[in-house]
């Protein structure tokens, strides 16, 4: 059981992580590098002269981008371990888990881990004003846990008590409010910050849907392989 869980999660997480890293390097990294020019003061928004919206961002930085690929693969492997574990429990309880149903698991994972926190704490470019990092991490974690529980209640709960509880869990973190800065000191133009948040969420959705499908597929494949070997 443990080897089926570990094997399928490691394969699924690594495959989804590599694709996520590729998408991030193509779509998110240029916006991040652009923002860093404002963070470091090389470009100044609302200075005396108009600033080009298409600065030279440099090429691929092997060390920096290599670390990004490594850490993206690690993060998605971590998510895969959690998702495959949840899939195994759902299957034991009678649900059918396939690559196809994995797509919905992926969307749910995206909503819990990316979209729900982003509703009150949007993905930040470097150089924007933000509240204390520990306070934001605590709020982020609480929101992810509450949202994941809510989606579990929607998917597997029966009756209005479960569904009503899910709505409360989804809304509560945003009614409570995320930590925000006391004043705005960000140096990055809103156009760049908005594009960054949209790209981060778009790539996140693609990566999570892939992760869900890979988790479902490898989970079934490992089950058949180990079943045949037994």
């Amino acid at each position: 059981m443990a080897s089926r869980l570990l094997t399928s999660a490691l394969f699924a997480g690594f495959c989804a992580g590599l694709l996520a890293a590729l998408l991030q390097l193509v779509f998110v990294q240029p916006v991040l590098l652009h923002a860093e020019l404002y963070e470091s003061g090389q470009l100044v928004h609302f200075g005396a002269d108009p600033v080009s919206a298409n600065p030279d961002l440099g090429g691929i930085d092997l060390m920096r981008d290599g670390l990004s690929v490594l850490f993206t693969a690690l993060v998605y492997t971590g998510y895969a371990l959690v998702m495959v574990a949840a899939m195994s429990l759902a299957e034991a309880a009678g649900a059918t888990v396939t690559a196809r149903s994995g797509l919905i698991w992926g969307v749910a994972g995206f909503v819990a881990v990316h979209l729900a926190p982003a509703v009150s704490l949007p993905p930040e470019v470097p150089g924007v004003a933000a509240a204390d990092v520990v306070a934001r991490q605590v709020w982020w974690l609480a929101t992810v846990v509450a949202s994941a529980m809510a989606l579990g209640l929607i998917a597997f709960g029966k009756g209005w008590v479960a569904w009503g509880g899910a709505v409360v869990l989804l809304a509560a973190p945003h009614l409570f409010g995320a930590p925000h800065p006391d004043s705005f000191t960000g140096t990055v133009p809103p156009e760049v910050a908005a594009l960054f948040a949209a790209r981060a969420l778009g790539v996140g959705l693609a990566a999570w849907v892939l992760l869900g499908a890979f988790c479902g597929w490898f989970w079934q494949r490992e089950g058949q392989r180990q079943g045949a070997a037994a």
Binding site: V28, S68, V75, E124, Q137
Partner: peptide, 15 residues
């Protein structure tokens, strides 16, 4: 520092 870009791109609170 090593995970910096990934933390921003995946929406984690970074710094």
């Amino acid at each position: 520092d090593a995970a910096h870009d990934v933390r921003h791109a995946t929406g984690f609170p970074c710094h």
